[in-house]
Design a protein around this nucleic acid. Structure first.
Lengths: 343, 343
DNA sequence: ATTATTTATGCTATCGGTTGCATTCTTAAA
DNA sequence: TTTAAGAATGCAACCGATAGCATAAATAAT
């Protein structure tokens, strides 16, 4: 079913009466080869339909120039930004990216890690799945000296730095903003508390409440998947509460938007009855009405910094292990959904 | 900088006083190897920290069990669905996916194709970039017998089937719906007419107008990038028109949403002044108010069918070249943004 | 013209699984 | 007990590029 045999550097060499070595070097633009010979080589290569064999090359050279990326999902605007940032930096440094999704499953994540491992990635960048437990699955990589770096959803490991934002402060700022608007009864819709991003935000939420002298009520923290359905489910739960909350802080804009809309469909007025604030500054937050207040999240920058950090480690310019974490700036963005000014 | 030497099947073989062949087969769960030996092999492999070398394997066996996917961007809900569908089918058939983005650039797309080619993908699934021109960049793959399949944004090639929806019919249905609501002055915001998806929808738009006896006005077709900014720009252009249009059909929900919101911010009432309909049934269409009418687009299904088709070709069960295209069902979804009933 | 340099090219072993074919060891049938 | 068939394992060549070291060719210096 497949056509003629593959053309190799040996075929090119024979045709030009050169050695395979020279052809290899010529194709790689090695300075040891004369311009004239290089041209002859590349011309014949094209003419004969030669294609570079990555496997043979990797097998011999033991370098792949490939960086693995494992993320929960790639359908959010945030992740898309992160990937764009990573890809730009990686390409410029002549690295390829292999991207795979865990789909929020720790099992699939473990399989992905193994695949990356077998594919000899030079390094790995990971934002862990919703239910990932422990860091043991990364040990095989680390033992072989393959650097692992976490971003956004990080794990704690002495060898692996994390690129994050200050989630606790962000959670504090969001909650504090609602308090400043006069809210006294604030719900926090968050995710698995094993994940740094969510537990930190919860801490920020709690500290803002404490500061305002408001007693923490565990019923006001909803742990969910933070997806669309969760937003709708939470809205239904909120509608059953009495008294109704007067503020809602959601750790994800998309979830927040769905929750808000469901409440509005049920006659609740936003922000008059309930003030809302989300997280991520997803494009959706600007489009819905009332526009959703949120926390900015520098996705592109996060991707760039992660990739740059990893690559500089790979190039031996900087040891990754000495870094614990890099914290990026994020900030409160106030829009109509939280401007109720009840004071 | 890196630790001890790699463990190979030879090391395992030596340790167990077996041949490398047996070890290789044992690890591959080959039926020729006894259960007992298999267990000894896998145990020692784990103990010694062996990792499978994909490159050596691919080099020798000339199969990679990898399928390449090139898409314009992965930040839309539609693409995310497509990829999820592809990944599911591919995984079940024991294939890996390498995904890369062209970021709507034909140049980057060409580079991606070449990378896929060098990485010896067994097959390729592509949705082409905004400005891709011609099909010559795929010839090298086809000449080597590597099947190429297009989905959504397709190109015309005798060897490459396309998985699509009936864009012309969809464009007709959308326009027809606006006409049925009494619109007489309908704008079509579309993309590069070189892309089948957009030119077909334009054809549908034109045929619906013709059927209604409305003369086509070229000024009413806006060719744009269909992104958020385009939505806003179009809104500004529309505001300058006199008379204002009474209906807008946008080939992308996200773009439509941004356009609609901008118009509403300027005091236009939707759907009373201008009726809106989008395309894709993106989650955003359900969340904005008024909810956006749209055309459903079966992303997951499209991904599954594409992957299934390609894999059955790779397995020799079905020749892909005999198929010209597969057309999936799509349908009109009516929501509030178009319900003006001016008749 | 001769030696010292620089530049260009070649030789050969190697990376680590895989595969067709051959061989040895079991178990079943005669 | 002998033979046939089947199960289990081994041999050796191979996939295609690469790197260290050696050599040849071209140029510069003496």
């Amino acid at each position: 079913m497949y056509s003629e045999k593959e053309v190799t550097i040996y075929d090119i060499a024979k045709r030009l009466d050169l050695s395979a070595t020279t052809v290899s070097r010529g194709l790689k633009d090695n300075p040891a080869i004369s311009k004239k010979t290089k041209k002859r080589i590349t011309d014949v290569a094209v003419e004969m339909g030669y294609r570079f064999n990555t496997f043979a090359s990797n097998l011999r050279s033991k370098r792949t120039n490939t960086i693995g990326v494992i993320i929960p999902r790639m359908n959010s605007s945030f992740m898309s930004d992160v990937l764009a940032g990573m890809e730009k930096v990686a390409n410029e440094a002549n690295y390829n990216l292999i991207i795979s999704q865990s789909l929020e499953s720790a099992d699939k994540e473990a399989v992905n890690i193994k695949t990356m491992f077998n594919n000899r990635v030079d390094g790995l960048m990971v934002s862990v799945a919703y239910n990932t437990n422990g860091v043991s699955q990364f040990e095989m990589l680390l033992q072989k000296g393959v650097p692992v770096l976490f971003f956004d959803r990080t794990l704690d490991h002495p060898m692996c730095p994390g690129i994050i934002i200050d989630n606790q402060k962000s959670g504090y700022l969001a909650t504090r903003h609602l308090l400043d608007q006069g809210c006294k009864n604030i719900i926090h819709i968050t995710g698995n508390q094993e994940r740094n991003v969510y537990s930190e935000r919860q801490k920020g939420y709690e500290s803002a409440l404490a500061e305002a002298g408001i007693e923490l009520n565990k019923d006001q923290t909803f742990v969910t998947m933070l997806d669309e359905q969760a937003g709708i489910d939470c809205a239904e739960q909120i509608l059953k509460m009495s008294p109704l909350p007067d503020g809602v802080f959601v750790d994800n804009d998309n979830c927040a938007a769905n929750c808000m809309m469901k409440l509005m469909d049920s006659g609740i007025k936003i922000p008059e009855d309930i003030a809302f604030i989300g997280f991520n500054n997803d494009p959706i937050s600007k489009i819905i009405r009332p526009a959703l207040s949120t926390i900015s999240y520098p996705g592109v920058e996060m991707g760039q910094i992660a990739a740059r950090k990893l690559i500089s480690h790979l190039n031996g310019q900087q040891n990754i292990n000495s870094t614990n974490s890099i914290v990026l700036r994020s900030e409160l963005i106030v829009r109509d959904s939280s401007l109720c000014n009840r004071l």
